[in-house]
């Protein structure tokens, strides 16, 4: 946990008006690591991700990403290195833009040449046939859309991917495909992930370490092994784990 962390967050605080949604949160993510953040709705997990992505500019504390102290407003170089995949592929893709438009835009913004090959490579990387390039989002299934969203994030060749519930809008069989894709991409490209999810099994599968959040605070940080052994230290983490195992009929 030193200066060479990919992401280092120190005493992060976020308020929306009177409600203090992230409170003194600190954590560090090593390069190449996959780090999970879990919690129930309103725990502040997505807000943390939005601060890291530069989408929320109202925060205090210190955020270092790839060795650089981050200002509230990020520069272009930041967005080449850090990209985000959102929860709902039905909402995150522009309905009137083709897959090609969606993938070409980040390249145009960053003045990257050779969009042609980059786009076809990005589609290939996420396992979509080249013929999908000129389709509109409504011509794609949920899983295919999420692949497009991942391709859009990857087309700039970032080193950090911020994943906000990337599979919770998908059926389990499609979820398995998308999670496998994310795992393979991470190993191939040595990516660093932060995965926000309410699903402990998904986080246990994808991440080496995870942070449990409640009411804007980090309750407990643990390894995936601790999670698998059902051995969290805090009562809340234990409660969350028990609840995720399904219904238990008393007596």
């Amino acid at each position: 946990m030193s200066t060479n962390s990919a992401i280092n967050v120190d005493k992060l605080n976020v308020s929306f008006g009177d409600s203090h949604v992230v409170k003194d949160l600190s954590f560090a993510v090593e390069p190449g690591e996959s780090y999970g953040i879990v919690g129930e709705s309103g725990s502040g997990k997505s807000t943390v991700l939005r601060v890291l992505a530069g989408l929320n500019r109202d925060w205090s504390g210190e955020v270092d990403i790839l060795g650089k102290r981050q200002p509230k407003i990020r520069d272009k170089a930041f967005y080449r290195a850090v990209q985000m995949v959102f929860q709902d592929p039905y909402g995150s893709l522009h309905p009137k833009k083709t897959v090609d438009d969606t993938l070409a835009e980040p390249l145009a913004i960053h003045g990257i040449r050779d969009a042609e090959t980059k786009i076809s490579r990005a589609l290939q990387d996420v396992g979509l046939p080249a013929s999908f390039r000129f389709r509109y989002p409504h011509q794609l299934s949920g899983g295919q859309r999420q692949r497009v969203a991942i391709a859009r994030a990857l087309v700039l060749e970032p080193t950090i991917l911020l994943l906000d519930e990337p599979t919770s809008a998908l059926d389990v069989s499609i979820q398995a495909e998308v999670l496998n894709l994310l795992q393979a991409l991470r190993h191939e490209r040595k990516l660093t992930y932060i995965l926000v999810s309410h699903d402990l099994a998904v986080v246990g599968h994808m991440c080496e370490r995870l942070l449990v959040m409640q009411f804007g605070r980090g309750v407990e940080e643990m390894t995936a092994a601790t999670l698998a052994a059902r051995a969290p230290q805090t009562a809340y983490a234990q409660q969350l784990l028990t609840a995720s195992e399904g219904f238990r009929r008393a007596g």
Partner: peptide, 8 residues
């Protein structure tokens, strides 16, 4: 298809 904590 389901990720399972007991059978990684």
């Amino acid at each position: 298809c389901l990720p399972d904590l007991d059978h990684p």
